[in-house]
Simulated scan of single mutants.
Amino acid sequence: MATWRCVKQCGACCHLDPTERPGLETYLTPEELDQYLSMVGEDGWCVNFDHATRECRIYAHRPRFCRVEADTFHQMYGIEPEELNDFAIDCCRDHIADLYGDRSLEMLRFDREVGIYSNRHGC
């Protein structure tokens, strides 16, 4: 069974382009929306994302909307705690595919780290 976890040096969630995330105002408070928009750089990436290391510079102190936690996802999206694992995996896979491609190294790493094994080469 696949188990969601944050995969270091992926950074897909750090691509914050609001045009690719419709409905921000429906699940962020007005203060969070202001904070979110202030974090979006000209290239659509979070200003706290270090492209060289592919890590968040404020990970330990990141805002609520950057955290994959049962309480947060229940409050923001109405996701029940028992649904979080599958929901988070699907969200990450969709975002990784959109940014890097569904056969990218980032996708392969994510799948391996969370325990999704595919038979891509007919083996």
Rank of each mutant, 00 (worst) to 15 (best):
W4A: 01
W4D: 01
W4C: 02
R5S: 02
V7A: 05
K8I: 09
K8R: 13
G11W: 08
G11F: 07
A12C: 13
C14Y: 04
C14V: 07
L16A: 08
L16P: 03
P18C: 05
T19G: 12
P22E: 12
L24E: 11
E25G: 05
T26M: 07
L28N: 04
T29C: 07
E32F: 01
Y36I: 05
Y36L: 07
Y36N: 01
L37G: 03
L37T: 08
M39C: 06
G41Q: 03
E42S: 13
G44K: 02
W45Q: 02
W45K: 05
C46T: 03
V47A: 07
V47F: 08
D50G: 10
D50H: 13
D50L: 12
H51S: 09
T53C: 03
T53A: 13
C56N: 05
C56E: 06
R57W: 00
Y59V: 00
A60W: 00
A60E: 10
H61D: 15
R64D: 12
R64T: 08
F65K: 06
F65Q: 10
C66S: 07
C66W: 06
D71L: 01
T72N: 14
T72D: 10
T72C: 11
Q75F: 06
E80W: 09
P81H: 09
E82G: 03
E82F: 11
E82Q: 11
E83T: 02
N85L: 09
C92F: 06
C92L: 02
I96R: 00
A97L: 10
L105W: 08
E106S: 10
L108N: 12
R112W: 15
V114E: 01
I116H: 11
Y117P: 07
N119F: 15
N119T: 11
R120K: 13
H121V: 11
C123F: 14
